[in-house]
Simulated assay, not measured.
Amino acid sequence: MTASLPPLRNHLLHPSGGLVYHLRALRHRHGLWAGFHHTVAGWLNSWQPRRRQLVLVGPNAGHALPAGFLARFDEVVALEPDPLARGWLARRPDAGRLRFVALDCLAGPEGLALLAAAFPEAAILFSNVLGQVPAPGGSWSDLLRRQLEMLPWASYHDVASTERAPQCTTPITLDGGDDLDATLARFWHGGRLTVNDHETFQLGGQGPFSYVPWQIIPGRWQLVEWTCRDGQPRPEAQA
Rank of each mutant, 00 (worst) to 15 (best):
Thr2Met: 13
Ala3Met: 08
Ser4Thr: 09
Pro7Ala: 15
Leu8Trp: 03
Arg9Phe: 11
Asn10Ala: 10
Asn10Thr: 05
Leu13Met: 14
Gly18Ala: 12
Leu19Ala: 04
Val20Asn: 15
Val20Asp: 11
Leu23Trp: 15
Leu23Val: 10
Arg24Gly: 09
Ala25Ile: 01
Leu26Phe: 04
Arg29Lys: 11
Trp33Leu: 14
Ala34Pro: 01
Ala34Cys: 08
His38Glu: 11
His38Cys: 12
Thr39Arg: 13
Val40Asp: 02
Val40Arg: 07
Ala41Gly: 15
Trp43Ser: 02
Leu44Ile: 11
Trp47Met: 03
Gln53Tyr: 09
Leu54Ala: 06
Leu56Tyr: 13
Gly58Trp: 06
Pro59Thr: 05
Asn60Ala: 15
Asn60Arg: 13
Ala61Ile: 01
Ala64Tyr: 02
Ala64Val: 05
Ala64Leu: 07
Gly68Gln: 09
Phe69Ser: 07
Leu70Glu: 03
Leu70Ile: 07
Ala71Asp: 08
Arg72Asn: 08
Arg72Ser: 08
Arg72Val: 04
Asp74Glu: 15
Val76Cys: 10
Val77Ser: 00
Ala78Glu: 01
Ala78Gln: 03
Leu79Cys: 05
Glu80His: 02
Glu80Pro: 01
Pro81Gly: 07
Asp82Ala: 01
Pro83Glu: 06
Arg86Phe: 03
Gly87Trp: 04
Gly87Phe: 02
Trp88Ile: 09
Trp88Thr: 01
Arg91Ser: 03
Arg92Gln: 05
Pro93Phe: 03
Asp94Met: 02
Ala95Trp: 07
Leu98Arg: 01
Leu98Val: 04
Leu103Cys: 12
Gly108Lys: 05
Gly108Asp: 04
Pro109Asn: 04
Leu114Ile: 00
Leu115Cys: 13
Leu115Tyr: 01
Ala117Cys: 00
Ala118Gln: 05
Phe119Gly: 00
Pro120Asp: 12
Ala122Ser: 07
Ala123Thr: 12
Leu125Cys: 06
Phe126Pro: 05
Ser127Gln: 06
Asn128Val: 04
Asn128Asp: 15
Val129Phe: 07
Leu130Thr: 02
Leu130Val: 01
Gln132Asp: 14
Gln132Arg: 15
Pro134Thr: 03
Pro136Ala: 01
Gln147Gly: 06
Gln147Ser: 02
Gln147Ala: 01
Glu149His: 14
Glu149Leu: 10
Pro152Gly: 00
Trp153Glu: 02
Ser161Tyr: 10
Thr162Arg: 10
Ala165Asp: 13
Ala165Glu: 12
Pro166Met: 11
Cys168Tyr: 11
Thr170Ser: 07
Thr170Gly: 00
Ile172Met: 12
Leu174Cys: 06
Leu174Asn: 03
Asp175His: 14
Asp178Tyr: 11
Asp179Lys: 08
Asp181Pro: 00
Ala182Tyr: 09
Thr183Trp: 10
Leu184Trp: 02
Phe187Trp: 09
Phe187Leu: 05
His198Val: 01
Glu199Trp: 09
Gln202Ser: 02
Gln206Thr: 11
Phe209Tyr: 10
Tyr211Ser: 00
Tyr211Ile: 05
Val212Trp: 00
Pro213Phe: 04
Gln215Lys: 10
Ile216Phe: 14
Ile217Ser: 12
Ile217Val: 15
Gly219Cys: 04
Gly219Asp: 05
Trp221Lys: 08
Gln222Leu: 14
Asp230Gln: 11
Gly231Cys: 09
Gly231Leu: 14
Gly231Ala: 12
Gln232Asn: 11
Pro233Tyr: 10
Pro233Gln: 11
Ala237Ser: 13
Ala237Met: 08
